[in-house]
Amino acid sequence: MAEPRNRYSTVSLTLHWLTAALVVTQVLLINAHEANEDTRLFIDLHKSVGLTILVLTLARLAWRAANPAIPLPERAPRWQKLAARATHVLFYVLLLAMPLVGWAASSASGREINFFGLFEWPLLPIGGGRDVARDLMDLHETAAKALYVLIALHVAGALKHHFIDRDNVLHRMLPFIPRRP
């Protein structure tokens, strides 16, 4: 029988941490926009980073389909395994839905999306104007709050595994943390 994997691949780690860094970037960009509402620069960058997250999430899903997740330790209770699975599924749902809804909102209002100044991202064939765009942005903001809750649960779970369960779950995503015997 093959020895179980004890850490994720470089591709998995890169996609995970790059996505995490871009999510933090999104929060910083939206906060900068709210502090400086007279500039569109932060929103334009927010849109580009959001679409980058969409593409990366699709890549992560493709990679994950070919490279399944490492299971939690056998001794982990069933409810924890279910909670971890549900959290990961919800992460993927939100990391796809949020950029799609933002893209739809821009499209509904007819606001162009200039992808990092490289090219115009095509708008979706959605009408409805400002009212539809506003409703979509409300949904986008609600999803952001749900994402914050998931991030908190994810980090709390990782820290619980490391400091309370004293297993190697955190080592899988942070290989510089020494592996426990």
Rank of each mutant, 00 (worst) to 15 (best):
A83M: 12
L29E: 01
T25V: 12
E141C: 02
T57P: 01
V155N: 09
R64A: 15
E37C: 04
V24A: 14
G157D: 00
V169W: 02
V149C: 04
L94H: 03
L94Q: 05
L123D: 10
H33D: 03
A2M: 10
V89G: 03
I53W: 05
A76S: 14
D167T: 14
A104R: 00
L170M: 14
S106H: 04
I43W: 03
A108S: 11
V27F: 10
M137T: 09
S48C: 05
E120L: 08
G157W: 01
P122F: 04
L174C: 13
A69M: 12
R60H: 12
R75T: 13
S48Y: 01
I70L: 10
Y8M: 08
L90K: 00
P77I: 09
R78T: 12
E3I: 10
I53V: 15
F42G: 01
H16K: 08
P178V: 11
I151A: 08
L170F: 03
N6R: 04
I30F: 05
T39R: 14
A69Y: 10
R64Y: 11
K81Y: 04
R111M: 15
R5S: 15
A2N: 12
F116C: 02
T39Y: 12
A86N: 01
L82Q: 05
R172P: 03
A104D: 01
A20V: 15
H140C: 09
R134P: 00
F119K: 08
A62P: 00
A152F: 02
A105T: 02
A20D: 09
S9L: 06
F176Y: 11
E3T: 11
G117I: 12
R64L: 14
V23A: 04
R60L: 13
P77T: 11
A133P: 08
V132M: 09
T25C: 15
A83C: 07
L90S: 08
R64S: 13
I70H: 07
R85N: 15
N67W: 05
F42A: 14
H33N: 07
Y8W: 06
L58D: 06
H46I: 03
A59V: 15
A105E: 06
E74T: 07
H88W: 11
L170P: 04
P175V: 13
L28F: 12
E141F: 12
F116W: 10
